[in-house]
Simulated scan of single mutants.
Amino acid sequence: MLFRPRRASRLAWVTLALGLALGCRPAPRTPAAELARLPWDSVLARAKGTTVVWRMWRGDPSINAFVDQWVAPRVKERHGITLTAVEGQGPEIVNQLVVEREAGARGSADLVWINGETFGNLRREGLLDGPWAGSLPNARYVDSASPIIMRDFEQDLAGYESPWGQVQFALIYDSVRTPDPPRTVAALASWIQAHPGRFTHDQQFTGTTFLMTVFYALGGGVQNYQGGFDSLRYESGSARVFDWLERHKAAFWRKGETYPPGVAELHRLFANREVDFSMSYNQSEALTKARQGILPATARPLLLQDGTIANTHFVGIPFNAGETAGAMVVANFLLSPEAQLEKQKPEVWAD
């Protein structure tokens, strides 16, 4: 005889199966804006025992050591948070979040290191959670009167990212090899022509920032580009930069036919005396890399008199972060006087 389950038994099995399926789903996340309205003790309580995944640029051993060996142990000891840093920057972060949004997936990161174009793209796509940054207890230490801090490449932060460092672009020269370096973009152009093969820039972010410095200098200063994006001013300014490159690239390293892919490779060319300048988006890097033996002991930073680009870097919380409270606690710790002082030490990061 065949056994036929009674209708009630079938219903029980269906109910059990649905219960198991629903039980496998992640618990609904609490938006950052909602957490920002809670007492901070409540945020700390929710953060305890969480694992926060921080997607960030991992290209500098000094920065990696600061995060992995100094920040992570302290947020673990004080707040019970396991902090895990993973590689990811710029378009990678945007693309990953777009894919996760389309899939309806829980976020693979809880905190992201961002600024500038990446911040703008994430905001336009609705991929950041917030506002939350102004609710952090350590936000009281932020200089709210500084346009460099409170605007990210002319964009209002609106509480969607929290600052954690500030840097300024600088050329790097050897005070023995080049005791009297050029101090303006015009003087640099003359120096390049007089010393063929001894100058170049990298093809990544630092090199792009150098070209932005040239852009503003040739355009009469940054004040001529304030007040929002103007396509005509941008096109004319870009044309001047391309003309500048065309006139001088034959005197670049390898006649401007190839460029070092990144700033690490440019540092090596400088250290090996193949070129006489390197560059950095951190004015203190000449000294920190000299202390580490990567650059010559006589390496020095050079801030051009035309002005160079200063930049604040931030952390944001993705719209689908699973551990929002933990991310907020980490962001708050990064703003603490203790953490800021530590990373400003030349032997640590000098940021």
Rank of each mutant, 00 (worst) to 15 (best):
Q166W: 05
R198T: 07
M279K: 02
Q193T: 11
E87C: 11
F153H: 15
R37P: 01
Q305M: 07
W40P: 02
L266V: 11
Y281I: 12
L171Q: 08
A85R: 05
W40T: 05
F215A: 03
D180S: 14
G120W: 00
L122A: 06
A21M: 12
A325F: 07
N282D: 10
R101F: 02
R123P: 02
A251I: 00
R29M: 12
T178I: 15
R101S: 14
P182A: 10
P318H: 05
G134T: 15
Y281V: 11
P301L: 02
T184H: 13
L16K: 02
W244V: 14
V214P: 08
D174Q: 06
T50A: 00
V52W: 01
F229G: 08
L38G: 00
T118I: 06
G107K: 08
T308L: 00
G19P: 05
K289F: 02
F242R: 15
V185N: 03
A239L: 08
G134D: 15
R106E: 14
A36I: 01
F119Y: 15
L303E: 06
M279S: 11
R37Y: 00
E347V: 07
P163M: 06
D276V: 11
T312Q: 04
Y281Q: 06
V263C: 03
P147K: 11
T213C: 12
E265R: 11
D152R: 05
T82E: 14
P318G: 14
Y225A: 10
F215E: 03
N121E: 14
G90H: 06
A105N: 01
L20I: 12
Q283S: 02
A65S: 12
A65L: 03
Q69Y: 03
L127G: 13
Y160L: 13
E117M: 07
I294S: 07
L341E: 11
V71N: 00
W13V: 12
G120K: 10
E102N: 13
Q292S: 09
A36T: 03
P346S: 00
L303P: 11
T312V: 15
M328C: 02
G219F: 01
